[in-house]
Simulated scan of single mutants.
Amino acid sequence: MDHEQAFELLPGYIDEELSLSESLEFERHLASCERCKHAYEQQRQVIMQLRQNDLRLDAPPELVKRIRAALPVQRSWWQRVASRLGGVSGFGGTGRTSGTGGTLGWAPVGAMVVSLVALTWSAGLYLSLPAGDTHLTQELVDSHVRSLQFDHLYDVISTDRHTVKPWFDGKIDFAPPVIDLAQQGYPLVGGRLDYLNGHAVAVMVYRYKLHPINLYVWPGSEAGATPHIYERQGYHLAHWSAAGMNYWAITDAGESELNGFVTNLRAHSAS
């Protein structure tokens, strides 16, 4: 890593936005480069000073009062429900009817029922996850989004599994299976290191059309050989284990596309 690359990564390192491999490479450069070490210390001191309490300015009490008076009154959920029910015929006696005799006041109740059904359905999806996987799935979603937002999708870019697999040698203490699924419509495009569930994991990156698929792999003997597909925050996740490895796949593609990826991957692994 040269000075130019180090200066580009410095803000991301300070904000803890780098991938595991990028952080390790940056730290190795920092240990042997006084110029970059000085730049890092300068930025760190600036951030520490900006976080000091004496730089904060309290607004005058009169200004605070005016701002609070201008804000809309925040009512509780039950208060809003009671307010809507109060305008419905039969609840408070203030219902209004249209010219055809229909009751207009029932419209808010219908909307409220639809909202409650949607809320119940969403809660059911969330609670369908095993208790031990809830925190892990959030980590996976965060990692997937972070890899897309900060252009950290790959540490090694290659469609050749014989290039991607050796890249992990010496970086982790296990050899992840790297499978090419280009003929099945899920080409391998690269790999990276990530930190998940308390330890370093291998990530193989595939694509389905324009949809990236992150496949996280690490050793383990968890039960769950049969894949399960979940949905969280608009992403689909699949989880299974095989041959002493844990597998988690995540993508913004649809459930059927992810299921096709998992089916092809498992069939290829078993062959």
Results as ranks from 00 to 15, higher is better:
L153S: 01
T103N: 07
S83P: 02
R80S: 10
G92E: 09
H152N: 13
M112E: 04
S143I: 00
R75C: 00
L148D: 09
T137W: 04
L125A: 02
G132I: 08
T120R: 11
G101R: 07
T100V: 08
L116K: 09
D155Q: 01
G105D: 01
V113P: 02
Q79S: 15
S76G: 12
A131Y: 06
L140V: 07
S76N: 02
H144V: 01
S83R: 11
R96K: 15
R146D: 06
V113W: 09
V73A: 03
D133K: 00
R96F: 11
G93W: 04
S76Q: 02
T134Y: 07
G87D: 11
P108T: 02
S83N: 12
L119P: 00
D133I: 00
S147H: 04
S76K: 00
T97L: 13
Q138Y: 05
S89R: 04
Y154S: 07
A131W: 06
F150Y: 13
G93A: 13
G93K: 06
V117N: 11
L153M: 05
R80C: 13
D160L: 03
G99M: 03
T97P: 04
W77Q: 15
G99S: 09
S89W: 04
V114A: 11
D133Q: 04
D160G: 04
R146K: 12
V145C: 02
V81Q: 06
R96N: 07
T100D: 13
T137S: 10
T103S: 12
T137N: 12
L153P: 00
P130F: 05
W77I: 10
Y126N: 00
G95N: 12
T120F: 07
P108V: 01
G86R: 11
A131E: 06
L148C: 07
E139H: 11
G90W: 14
Y126M: 02
T97C: 13
